[in-house]
C-alpha cells in the first residue's frame, strides 16, 4: 500500500509542478496582454493594474480563476438540459464522438481484415487509407455536412461521419500490424492441427492483434473528439463544444471560449481514462500481459 501511495505521488508531483509553473506564468502574462484595454490613470500601481487585468469582462487572456469560475457556474447553476450548461454541450459532442468511434472501429477493423487477407486490397486500398489522412479535416468537414444535409441526413450522423473519418486511421494501421504479428511457429502450429482459416483468425490473429489495437484506440479517441468538435464549427450547429467555441469567438466571450476549451480537454482525459480501464480489464483477463 505504501509503495502504491509513493508510486502515485511520484507520478502526480511532476504534473502538479508543471501546472503550478504554468499558472504563475499565465497570471503574469495576463497583465501585459490585458493592460492596453484597461482605462486606468497612469499613476496606478502594479497591484491595482493586476487586480483590474485579472477581473475584466472580456479580457484578451482571462485569468485561470475566471475560467474556473465560468466552468463552475455553468456546470452547477444551470440545468443539464440548458444550453448554458457546458456539460450539455460536452454530451452533444461526446455522443457524436462515440458514434464516430463506433464507425471508426467497425470500418478500421473491417479494412484491416480485408487488407491482411486479400492481397489485391493490400495493394489497392492501403494507399487510399494513407492519402485520406493528408486531406485537412477542416476542408472536408463542411462538404460532408452539406452533402449529407442535402440527402436529408442531419444532426448526429454527419458529425459522427467526420469523427469516424479521422479516427479509423490509427485503428486500421494498428490492426493491420496486429493481424500480421503472429510468428511463423504459431502459424505452423495451427497448420499441424489442420485448423480452418476462421479458427486461425479467431484463435490466433485476432487475440494477437488486441495488443496492437489499444495504442491505436487511444489516438483514435482523441481524434474522434477533435473530429466531432471541428464538425460543429462550420455547420451553424446550435449545440456542442464546437458551437459553443464559435459563439464565444463571435461575441468576444473569451472567458466562455476558454472554459469550453478546458471542458474539451477534460472530456478527452476522461475518455482516455476509460480506454485505459478497458485495456487493463482485457490485460487482466489475459494474465497481465498483452
Amino acid at each position: 500500500m505504501i509503495d502504491v501511495a509513493r508510486g502515485s505521488a511520484a507520478r502526480i508531483l511532476p504534473v502538479v509542478t508543471v501546472l503550478g509553473i504554468l499558472t504563475v506564468f499565465w497570471y503574469v502574462m495576463a497583465i501585459p496582454l490585458n493592460a492596453p484595454r484597461l482605462d486606468l490613470d497612469e499613476t496606478a500601481g502594479l497591484s491595482t493594474l493586476a487586480r483590474a487585468a485579472w477581473s475584466m469582462d472580456r479580457p484578451i487572456l482571462p485569468a485561470p480563476h475566471q475560467i474556473a469560475g465560468e466552468l463552475w457556474s455553468s456546470v452547477l447553476f444551470h440545468p443539464l438540459t440548458s444550453s448554458r450548461n457546458l456539460l450539455y454541450h460536452a454530451w452533444v459532442t461526446l455522443s457524436a464522438a462515440l458514434a464516430g468511434l463506433a464507425i471508426a472501429l467497425a470500418l478500421g477493423i473491417a479494412l484491416a481484415v480485408g487488407i491482411v487477407y486479400l492481397r489485391t486490397l493490400d495493394r489497392s486500398l492501403m494507399p487510399w487509407v494513407i492519402a485520406s489522412q493528408t486531406v485537412p479535416v477542416l476542408a472536408i468537414a463542411p462538404m460532408v455536412v452539406v452533402v449529407l444535409g442535402n440527402l436529408g441526413i442531419t444532426g448526429l450522423l454527419p458529425k459522427a461521419a467526420i469523427a469516424g473519418y479521422l479516427a479509423f486511421f490509427p485503428i486500421t494501421v494498428g490492426m493491420v500490424t496486429g493481424l500480421r504479428a503472429a510468428d511463423p511457429l504459431q502459424l505452423d502450429l495451427m497448420r499441424t492441427y489442420s485448423a480452418a482459416p476462421l479458427a486461425v483468425f479467431t484463435k490466433l490473429r485476432w487475440p494477437m492483434s488486441l495488443a496492437f489495437l489499444f495504442p491505436g484506440l487511444r489516438v483514435a479517441v482523441a481524434l474522434a473528439l477533435v473530429g466531432a468538435i471541428v464538425a460543429e464549427l462550420p455547420t451553424g450547429a446550435q449545440a456542442g463544444l464546437g458551437a459553443r467555441l464559435l459563439t464565444g469567438s463571435y461575441y468576444g466571450q473569451t472567458i466562455q471560449l476558454w472554459a469550453t476549451l478546458v471542458m474539451a480537454a477534460l472530456l478527452s482525459i476522461v475518455a482516455l481514462l476509460v480506454v485505459g480501464a478497458v485495456e487493463r480489464a482485457v490485460l487482466h483477463a489475459r494474465g497481465g500481459r498483452l
Binding site: 510468428d183 511457429l185 504459431q186 505452423d188 502450429l189 495451427m190 499441424t192 492441427y193 485448423a195 480452418a196 479458427a199 484463435k203 490466433l204 487475440p207 494477437m208 488486441l210 489475459r286 494474465g287 500481459r289 498483452l290
Partner: peptide, 26 residues
C-alpha cells in the same frame, strides 16, 4: 501427429490449461 517445435510456441494470452486445450477446441 502431434508436433513439438524448438520453441514452446505457446499463445501468451492463454493460460497454461487453455494453451493445452487449443487443439481440442479446434
Amino acid at each position: 501427429y502431434g508436433y513439438v517445435f524448438q520453441a514452446p510456441a505457446l499463445y501468451p494470452w492463454r493460460s497454461v490449461a487453455r494453451n493445452v486445450m487449443l487443439p481440442l477446441e479446434i
